Structure formats: C-alpha cells, structure tokens
Amino acid sequence: MWKTVIRRILIMIPQLFILSLLIFILAKQMPGDPFTGLITPETDPNRIEELRVKAGFYDPWYVQYYNWITNAAKGDFGQSYTHTKPVASIIGDRAMNTFALALFSVILVYLIAIPLGVIAGRYHDTFVDKTIVLYSFISFAIPAFVLYLIFIFVFGYRLMWFPTSGSVDVGLDPGTWDYYWNKIYHLLLPGMSYAILGTTGIIQYLRSEIIDAKTMDYVKTARSKGIPMKKVYSRHIFRNSLLPIAAFLGFTITGLLGGSIFIESVFAYPGMGKLFVESILSRDYSVITALVMLFGFLALLGSLLSDIILSIVDPRIRID
C-alpha cells in the first residue's frame, strides 16, 4: 500500500503544476490590481506606477509565473499587498482557526449522524425512523445561509448565548486558559450550525446501507446460527455499512480544512475561507494564488485519504 501512496503523491506534482499555471493566468486576467484601491484624489499617480513596476506587474506573464513558482517551491509565496505581510504568515494565522473549526465540526457531525443513521436503519418504518428522516429532509431543504442567519439572530442576538463574530475576544492573553476556552466558545455556534446541515447525507447513506444489509445472506446465516441480533448489528451490519461513510471522511476533513467560505463569511470567522473572499475583493493576487494552490492540494489529499481510510475499514479493499 505504501508504494501506491508514494506513487499517488508523485502524481500530485504535475497536477499541482497545471493547477498553479491556470490559477496564475486567471488571477492576472482579473480587472484592476492590488494598488487600484490605494488611489485617492491625493495619491500621486507616479508613486502607484513605481509600485507596479517594483512588483513586476509589467513583466511578461511567463516571467512573473517563473518567479512566483520558484519562490513558492521554497515556501515563499510572496508579500500580501493589502496586509503588507508575508503570505505564508497570513495563511498560517488563519489556518489555525480553520483547522479548529473543521475539527470541531467533523467530530460533531459524526457524533450526531452515525447514531441517528444506525437508529433509523435498525428501526426503519417506525415513528423514530420517520422522525429522523423528517429531520434529514428539513435540514436538506433549508438553505445554509438562512439557517446560519436564524441561528445568529436567535442564539446570538436574542438569547445572547454565543458570540456572533470573531474567533476570540479582544484583550485576552494568548496561552492562558481563558484564551483557549474563549476560542472554543466562539466555535460553538458556527460548528453546530454546520453540523446540523452536514449530517443529512451521512444519515441517509448509513440508513440505506443498514436497511439493505439486513436482507443480505450473511445476516440471515448469522441469525440462523443463533447469534443475537445485537451482535449481528455490531459485528456485521454496522461495519459493512460504514464503508460509504469512510469513503467520504477524507473529503469531509480536507474540504473543511480548505476553508468553509460560506460559513466563515456569514459568521465573520477569521479563517482561510473568509481570507479568500477578502483577497478576491482586494485583488490580492499573491494570497489568491497561494490559497487556491492550498485548496487544490487539500482536494487531492482528500481523495488519497479517503482511499486509505476505506482500505483500513475493510482490509479486502486495496488502493491501486
């Protein structure tokens, strides 16, 4: 398996190269530039031109791309024009917030979805199953931004149980217990909001797999041997039903790590998704290209991670 993993990682290199070339060209085709927002009636046009020449904006595109990709290979993604900081430093600060939100959201999604899916599949066509299915349909039908705004209004402004923006309160000393607890406190509302919508697909998949598995020959054989139904579910049905869920796990993790643009924007949560939107609006090419490259790498990593997890859950499956 390790040879296959190494081969898949090597295949990522030309894929990332093609992605970097496309993103760089498309970013350069965007109207305006990072210095356009600096122009005011008092701004000296010659100064703006000096900044553009210094940044290499008038060099041929292939020269700009070569300079950018060679520096990126060394870990230097350039300087952010709007934040006046190294791009790697900006993304690093936001990545920690996105990682915390992604980890909390994924844990919450599976803690909710797996028990509900198992219960719905085991007791299908009962009142409990119909209630869970109704919950799934409602959560699937509600637009994400509507649910997020409702949660902000109800739990943030009306009940004032949770903060409605940011990742930590101002004035807390980093490294203290109060600081870390406050960061967790800021995660609760966006994490729970995402989990309510993120459980729908997992519940439906798991429910369907369990219902189908109950009619399989190996279940009938186990029951005919007198094995209690509880053990049949735990040792046979549940394990086999987890296969499609395991296949999505890698994509779920890396997708959230890539930055949930929508939820971070609505909750004003300072993660990579919100940084991506801000960079597009400000024409900050250095940050845009670096983030898209990171998102692309995470998408490829998610595919590989899903295959690895699937082979671990079921040893009969081997990635190739």
Rank of each mutant, 00 (worst) to 15 (best):
I184D: 11
I184Y: 10
L187M: 14
L187S: 10
L188C: 11
L189K: 07
G191P: 13
G191N: 15
G191K: 12
M192H: 12
S193F: 01
Y194N: 13
A195C: 14
A195L: 09
L197D: 04
L197T: 06
L197E: 05
T199N: 04
G201T: 06
G201A: 10
I202E: 00
I203G: 02
Q204P: 09
Q204T: 15
L206M: 01
L206H: 00
L206C: 05
R207P: 11
S208F: 00
I210D: 03
I210E: 05
I210L: 02
I210F: 01
D212R: 02
D212P: 06
D212K: 03
A213P: 00
A213H: 04
K214M: 05
T215V: 09
T215W: 07
T215H: 04
M216W: 03
M216N: 07
V219Y: 03
K220W: 06
K220C: 10
K220P: 05
A222P: 03
S224M: 03
S224N: 05
S224Y: 02
G226H: 14
I227K: 02
P228N: 15
P228R: 12
M229F: 12
M229N: 13
K231S: 13
K231H: 07
V232W: 01
Y233L: 03
Y233H: 00
Y233R: 00
R235Y: 13
R235V: 13
H236F: 07
H236P: 07
I237A: 02
N240D: 04
S241I: 01
S241W: 01
L242K: 02
L242D: 02
L242E: 02
L243M: 09
P244R: 00
P244D: 08
I245Q: 01
A247I: 08
F248H: 15
F248C: 15
G250C: 14
G250I: 07
G250D: 12
G250N: 11
F251M: 15
F251W: 14
T252E: 14
I253R: 10
T254H: 02
G255K: 00
L256T: 11
L257K: 10
G259M: 00
G259Y: 00
S260D: 14
I263A: 10
E264G: 05
E264I: 07
V266F: 05
F267E: 02
F267W: 07
A268Q: 08
P270V: 04
P270A: 11
G271H: 03
G271S: 06
G273Y: 03
L275P: 02
F276E: 04
F276C: 11
V277I: 14
E278D: 13
E278K: 06
S279A: 07
I280C: 03
I280D: 06
I280R: 05
L281A: 14
S282G: 08
S282F: 06
D284H: 10
D284K: 05
Y285L: 12
Y285I: 07
V287Q: 02
V287N: 03
I288G: 01
L294T: 09
F295T: 12
F297A: 13
F297T: 12
A299W: 07
L301G: 11
L301E: 03
D307F: 09
I312C: 09
I312A: 09
V313E: 10
P315G: 08
R318N: 11
I319G: 12
D320V: 08
